[in-house]
Simulated scan of single mutants.
Amino acid sequence: MNILVTGASGFVGKNLCSQLHNLGYEVFKYDKSDTLETLSAYTKSCDFVVHLAGVNRPTNPEDFFSGNRGFTETLCDLLHQHNNKAPIAISSSIQAELDNDYGVSKREGESILLDHSRKNNSEVYIYRFSNLFGKWCKPFYNSVVATWCHSIARGEDIQINNENAELTLEYIDDVVNELVRCINGKPNFKNVEERLCSVPINEKVTLGELAKLIQSFKASRTSLLIPNMGDEFTKKLYSTYLSYLPTDEFSYNLNSHVDNRGSFTEILKTIDRGQVSLNISKPGITKGQHWHHTKNEKFLVVSGQGKIQFRDIFSQEIIEYEVTGDILQVVDIPVGYTHNIINTGENDLITIMWVNEIFDQDNPDTYYLEV
């Protein structure tokens, strides 16, 4: 299929076009820098139109109507001239229900499209998107998420006029997935008679909650606490936040505990899935020599040569596992067994360690006992 996308260089356009390419569609990208002749050529041979072009923050209110109503009229006229009955999905706005200039111009654009549907016998799908967020959205424009992610990532202050004000947010990948379903004839209709469609996934959040969550993302580099990826909204918002990091701040340092035995460095922590650390032992060094009631661990040696010893605290029998970075093998550390890890090689023994809970200094559940 040949998909014509108007407003292709905008936020939604860039995300949609990149995914359509991934899926193997031929994409005709049209933007305000292109000519009317180009649009005419595209409307002659396209199989589907995703109409994203529009005006939402002009200096002159009249531009609302020329950009939203006028361009939609031009698009429909060209399709009609070429006798092209390609379906059209239009990006409208929830403000189409309001009486401001922007809302009226969007509503008039919808009306032109519905009229074109009747005259041209073409399928029409109207999406009144709410507050969209995701990668490639311009900060300080019309998205509070983009603005706050940009500012918080740079340690800048943000302004909150009403912490209790509620937003309905739609994530760009969910928007793109819905538009792809629409292209394939499976739109999510909200009102079939009015041809209104919607993105089936959205999230309601207050401004205060939104700010707190984004600020926690920045703090996670210090606390090492990974956000709750089991919550879909948090996962999507965190991905969005990372896309606004300054390009010279993709990396961050960790705090290593170093002594003559080697080092121990915490990498990341989670509230419900424990934490991951990196342990380095010098040649001949033994670490551990302790046991736990409930705390359990997994060791993965990624470099060096060593052995892990276990002993049931009520037994004298020692169990040994040889470990090497040449064979990636996870070793479980059961509760009730005192254990250690010994570097038996000539180079550093490097081990990734996972433990099922974050270290609690007041309740470490760690008891010294030599194997």
Rank of each mutant, 00 (worst) to 15 (best):
I3H: 00
A8M: 03
S9T: 14
K14T: 14
Q19N: 07
L23M: 08
G24F: 14
G24I: 07
G24V: 13
E26H: 09
V27S: 06
F28S: 13
L36P: 04
S40I: 12
S40E: 06
Y42I: 05
S45Q: 07
V55T: 05
N56Q: 05
T59P: 06
T72Y: 04
T74M: 11
T74P: 08
L75G: 00
L79D: 03
H80M: 05
H82D: 10
K85H: 10
P87K: 02
I88R: 00
I90E: 00
Q95I: 13
E97Q: 03
R107N: 13
L114G: 01
Y125K: 03
Y127E: 01
F129I: 06
N131P: 11
L132E: 15
W136E: 07
S143D: 15
V144L: 09
I152A: 04
A153P: 04
R154I: 15
E156M: 09
N161Q: 15
N162G: 14
N164W: 11
A165I: 14
A165C: 08
L167I: 13
E170P: 03
D173F: 02
V175A: 06
V176F: 00
N177S: 01
N177P: 01
G185W: 13
E194V: 12
L196E: 04
L196Y: 12
P200I: 06
L207G: 09
I214K: 03
K218D: 09
T222E: 11
L225S: 11
N228I: 05
G230C: 09
F233I: 09
T234I: 15
H257M: 11
G262V: 13
I267L: 15
K269P: 14
K269H: 07
T270A: 05
G274I: 14
L278S: 10
I280H: 05
K282T: 04
G288S: 04
H290F: 00
T294E: 05
N296E: 14
F299L: 03
L300F: 04
V302A: 00
G306V: 15
I308Y: 10
F310A: 06
F314S: 15
Q316G: 15
I327P: 03
D332C: 05
P334N: 11
V335F: 02
I341Q: 06
G345R: 02
E346K: 07
I350A: 03
I352C: 03
M353H: 12
N356D: 15
D360E: 12
N363D: 09
N363R: 07
T366N: 10
Y368N: 13
